[in-house]
């Protein structure tokens, strides 16, 4: 075969294999995103009939929006703790549920079920639990910290969000970790046992290094979803108490639609996206360094 036909063949395969994905992705995500970036340079508003070019003034406004940066920092904290706790619990669950334990299928299903409910509804259910169930338990036990709702104190409201996030995602990540555990070749495990590695030592020296790909995926999932948390934020705290739990996505939304500063909101969304992309991509690159070929 000559090189020309090989090139054509390659292009043909490219179109067949990647074409449909790329078209859908571009039409739905890429083009709107580019259009969205364009809009940040205008004073566009969905409810105005006309708009014009305004240069960088929206971006300037973002840098003077003190609250945005405060909420940004708060969001970083929320994402950090969510990532840690989700992964620790998910890993623990996966470890326990791949060990020799009865009713594995039932338990796995049980831990996964929180994912069956969508974000908004989930938020409303938990709001009720924090406000009515926890407080009833607190009254019954006479335990002061539980007597008032978690959602009425700025710091505790963030903790409440982390609790619900962990509750929701731990089962989700558990599935990926289980796949990782099961994917460790039998020979490697046996070999390590012959070498005398058992229990905790085996976990640290054999299992964890081999599960780096699972860690990459799981961390990435929590980090990316954590930054974008909106539904849960809206339904659970709606920014309360007094606006202290408005995470970045909610702040952007309120800027764009409640304060009618669409251009600024859009510019904040773009800046936010860029930052998150940097964080997430560096996380992937960093963890990839620890990857070992099985």
């Amino acid at each position: 075969m000559n090189s020309k036909s090989k090139l054509l063949n390659n292009i043909g395969n490219f179109v067949i294999f990647i074409g449909p994905s790329l078209i859908a992705f571009s039409c739905v995500l890429l083009i709107p995103l580019i259009y969205g970036v364009y809009l940040t340079f205008t004073n566009y508003s969905p409810i105005k009939l006309t708009y014009e070019f305004v240069g960088f003034s929206n971006f300037q406004a973002v840098f003077t929006d003190k609250e945005f940066w405060q909420q940004f920092v708060k969001t970083l904290g929320y994402v950090f703790y969510s990532t840690i706790f989700c992964n620790v619990i998910a890993f623990l669950l996966a470890y326990l549920l791949t060990s020799n334990i009865k009713a594995r299928g039932f338990l796995r299903a049980g831990f996964f079920t929180p994912n069956l409910i969508g974000g908004i509804v989930l938020g409303y259910i938990w709001k009720f639990i924090f406000a009515n169930v926890f407080t009833k338990v607190g009254d019954a036990l006479g335990y002061q910290p539980l007597m008032t709702s978690f959602l009425t104190h700025p710091d505790r409201a963030i903790i409440a969000m982390i609790i619900v996030t962990v509750w929701q995602y731990a089962g989700y990540l558990m599935i990926i970790y289980i796949a990782g555990f099961v994917g460790i070749p039998q020979e490697v495990q046996e070999a390590s046992e012959i070498d005398g590695a058992t229990g905790f030592k085996k976990l640290c020296s054999i299992t964890i290094p081999l599960m780096v790909p699972s860690f990459i995926i799981c961390f990435f999932i929590v980090i990316s979803r954590g930054f974008m948390t909106y539904d849960l934020n809206l339904a659970l705290t709606n920014g309360q108490p007094y606006g202290s739990t408005r995470l970045a996505a909610m702040h952007i939304y309120q800027k764009a639609f409640q304060a009618n500063e669409y251009g600024i909101g859009q510019a904040e969304a773009i800046i936010f996206f860029a930052t998150v992309a940097i964080v997430a991509v560096s996380q992937v690159l960093l963890t990839k360094k620890f990857e070992v070929e099985a």
């Binding site: 036909s5 054509l8 063949n9 292009i11 043909g12 179109v15 067949i16 074409g19 078209i23 571009s26 039409c27 083009i31």
Partner: peptide, 18 residues
């Protein structure tokens, strides 16, 4: 090979249109 070229052409048209 012709079919693949046609598919490519189609995709290009769709993208341009969009």
């Amino acid at each position: 090979m012709k079919r693949r070229l046609f598919a490519m052409f189609l995709m290009l048209t769709v993208v341009t249109m969009l």
